[in-house]
Design a protein around this nucleic acid. Structure first.
Length: 654
DNA sequence: CTAGGGTTAG
């Protein structure tokens, strides 16, 4: 087809551009394109570049072929026509197309002016692809053509080397850069922060001639990620201007450093100052709320999203909401959100729903979600299978777990990662099949990590396997010498076997190594207020007397019903009576007692515990639910336990 | 056209 020379009719320009803007599918694009050819748009640079941009959108298949064929038909293509497509592809999931298009551009352009606009995108694509060879060639071309004087280009070169993980090369380019600007400094700083080289990052931060908000935001984020929360706070407080990224970085820093309350307080402060929250900050806050189990706050955010008509299928919002509701015990609400985004569901939304159901021990329902995915031809990813495997392991469904593990690579071509093997270890371990669990560890293609050994450790504890447990503890402690839970589990195993000397030894080693047991902490929501209880004798004066006598009364009544305190859950060998009273000071028992006093019959008692619920508390609460006729829902580190009528929803899989 | 923040996982 030959283009007629001359511009398109002026009246058609605006509607054509609008059509391109609204275009949704490739076949629509073909129609518009046909129309453009008829009405003389083939050389209209702006319209063609819009058309090219569409081709580069992710989810459009055959985009590259179409874009290439369009360009071939242009009489005198210029660099701008290529630019939008090159940029688009570099940001898509097919960055290679961007490199291909760039090569095509070089071969068909007569005049190279304007190609410097595309170069940053191609460099970005090379970085994403780890295309070392192409990247270095490009760098060579840039050096020869003096393009390094363009700050956009040289900064992109630095960024590419950082993406390659070649910090030294990036630094060399940075040091030799003719026109270093604030972006160059910021890129270099984030490069150092990403690999945890805080000192070098901080050095540049101090040295740079002029800092801007981005520099500070990057430092806050970097400090937060390497556990230096206080330094992050220093910078945050020092800043006079803050944007939503500043707040998000500081909020995430708190979250990462286990200071969720301060994170939420900061979010409140941000809102009260009129800073408009966007998707990233909301996602981050929702995950904190999920961890704390603060349903009310979570609901408030959900309402906020609805009233501000924020689309839940955007980014991670949907999956963050689903996760929040399921972690807060409201699996129905989670379902509701999941159903409400039936159009435009992300893979993350499906995964969160499956994991949420797994967390509730609803293995059947989790499998049904997966069946729906298959029916709708939605391709699962590795996280989908983690959810499914965890559902099976919490539901005691060994055969089903084996099935999913198999189809994961046979049908879906997903290579199992260490986490998947960990799930399998857990699956067999919980079901009491320790030999099979150990078999997984022996046969997996990588070295087992702490979590795999901890799975063995806790199932040895549950099934009274001292020797296997000892060995697993040795391995786990070797991999994570500071993790108190490994020592505690080993000590529990010894206690269960009555080997109090060994219990004492473990305790001694812990003290020598300075490993402190994380104190158990349970919280309970009463009248919209959160009340916290810590393990041990210190009890908030506000409640102490009433709660302690309530526990005494409950223990007395339960003993009449056959309750026998399980003293193996005590870390120290003290006299039997001492063990009993120290058991009765477990945080979840205090929270239950507080709930019995302050929550009316018929209203479920919701408790969140920071660690795993101990087996004594588990049988204790089962009995309470029957004797006091209460529904008690406990969320521990691993999952939900719904106690009713003397039975727990976990069916002893925990 | 280059630099900063986000979920689901044993």
């Amino acid at each position: 087809m030959t283009a007629i020379s001359g511009p398109p009719p002026t009246l058609l320009v605006k509607p054509t551009l609008q059509m391109l803007e609204k275009c949704k599918t490739m076949s629509e694009l073909r129609q518009i394109h046909a129309h453009m050819i008829k009405t003389n748009f083939v050389n209209h640079t702006f319209a063609i570049s819009r058309l090219m941009a569409f081709c580069s959108l992710s989810g459009v298949s055959g985009g590259l072929e179409y874009a290439s064929s369009v360009i071939l038909r242009i009489q005198n293509p210029n660099a701008f026509i290529f630019f939008t497509a090159i940029k688009g592809f570099s940001e898509s999931s097919y960055p290679l197309e961007s490199v291909i298009l760039y090569a095509q551009m070089l071969s068909c352009l007569e005049n190279f002016s304007g190609i410097e606009f595309s170069i940053p995108s191609v460099l970005k694509a090379c970085g994403k692809l780890s295309a070392f060879e192409e990247g270095r060639q490009l760098h060579g071309q840039i050096l020869k053509s003096y393009l390094l004087f363009d700050p956009f280009v040289s900064n992109a070169v630095v960024r590419m080397y950082l993406d390659f993980g070649e910090i030294k090369s990036a630094r060399q380019v940075f040091d030799k850069m003719p026109n270093r600007d604030v972006v160059s400094w910021n890129s270099m700083i984030t490069g150092y922060l990403r690999v945890g080289d805080i000192d070098l990052a901080h050095g540049l931060f101090n040295e740079m001639p002029k800092r801007d908000m981005v520099s500070c935001n990057a430092m806050i984020d970097g400090y937060g990620k390497c556990g230096k929360c206080e330094l992050a706070i220093d910078i945050f407080k020092m800043m006079s201007d803050k944007d939503v990224v500043t707040w998000t970085s500081m909020i995430s820093a708190y979250v990462l450093n286990y200071r969720p309350r301060e994170a939420l307080d900061l979010f409140q402060e941000m809102l009260s100052l009129g800073v408009k929250p966007d998707a990233p900050v909301i996602v981050s806050v929702l995950s904190t709320i999920a961890d704390l189990g603060f349903v009310e706050e979570g609901k408030w955010i959900h309402t906020y999203l609805c009233t501000n008509k924020i689309n839940l299928s955007f980014g991670f919002l949907g999956s963050a909401l689903i996760n929040m509701y399921s972690k807060c015990g409201c699996i129905e609400n989670a379902y509701c959100v999941f159903r409400s985004i039936s159009h435009g569901r992300n893979i993350g939304d499906w995964n969160s729903m499956i994991s949420g159901l797994a967390f509730h021990g609803l293995a059947q329902e989790a499998q049904e979600i997966f069946l729906n995915m298959e029916r709708m031809e939605i391709w699962p990813n590795e996280v989908t299978f983690l959810g499914l495997l965890s559902a099976c392991s919490h539901g005691g469904l060994v055969n089903e777990g084996e099935f999913y593990f198999r189809i994961m690579h046979e049908k879906y071509n997903i290579v199992p990662k260490i986490q998947h093997y960990g799930c399998m270890v857990d699956l067999y371990g919980r079901a009491g099949r320790l030999a099979d669990a150990l078999g997984v560890i022996q046969n997996m293609p990588m070295e087992a990590d702490v979590l795999a050994w901890k799975a063995i450790l806790s199932s040895s504890m549950k099934h009274g396997q001292v020797a296997i447990g000892e060995n697993a503890a040795l391995k786990a402690i070797g991999l994570a010498p500071k993790d108190s839970s490994c020592y505690v589990l080993l000590s529990n195993i010894y206690a269960k076997a009555g080997r109090w000397d060994d219990v004492a030894k473990v305790r001694l080693i812990m003290r020598q190594r300075g490993v402190r047991k994380i104190p158990g902490c349970s919280s309970i929501l009463v009248d919209g207020k959160i009340h916290e209880f810590l393990v041990g004798e210190e009890l908030d004066v506000r409640y102490s007397g009433a709660v302690l006598s309530m526990i005494e009364e409950v223990v007395y009544r339960l003993k009449l019903e056959g309750y026998r305190p399980d003293v193996t859950q005590v870390l120290v060998d003290i006299e039997e009576e001492g063990k009993e009273s120290s058991l009765s000071l477990h945080s979840e028992k205090k929270a239950v007692a507080f709930g019995l006093i302050n929550i009316n019959k018929g209203v479920p008692i919701h408790i969140v515990k920071n660690l795993r619920i101990c087996s004594d508390c588990h049988s204790f609460i089962k009995l309470v639910s029957r004797v006091y006729d209460r529904q008690i829902i406990v969320r521990d580190q691993n999952r939900f336990h719904r106690f009713e009528n003397g039975i727990c929803s976990c069916n002893e899989y925990w």
